[in-house]
Amino acid sequence: MTTPVDALQTALAGEHAALYVYGVLGARTSQSATPLLFERISEAYVAHRAWRDLLTNRLVDEGAEPTPAAPTYELPDTPPTPAGVGLAAAGIESRCADTYAYVVANTSGADRSWAIGALTRAATRMVGFGAAPQPLPGGPDLA
């Protein structure tokens, strides 16, 4: 049985991974050549950093040891072009959406409320990075 703390730990692990990959994608994005993409990558990085901190604090409040970040993460196999960066970013958000939906299913109250908001934000970010809107973000198995 998955506990709410387990679900939050999974979400935290996802935020660590997302931050790492967004850091790399940021380095592949030019503020002058592709200002909109740069802005979206930056916004996503800041949002995921805030969620990482929120989840860390939440787990500490629960008396749990927050999952640490790994030294490195597997990077998306996409070209370092603006299109490739957008595709990779949409992929991150898609995987994050899966995680947030998992948190929705395994929590209640404020934790679920956060996860619903995070899922919605991930779904709209995917579209912002050029992906087609998914009918059931975070629940491809439900379609």
Partner: peptide
Amino acid sequence: MTASGVAVLGLTACTTDSSPTS
């Protein structure tokens, strides 16, 4: 260690219930 943290995120549905509310 190379952690495929992003890949770990792909989780399936769970039927766990917690603190049901009306």
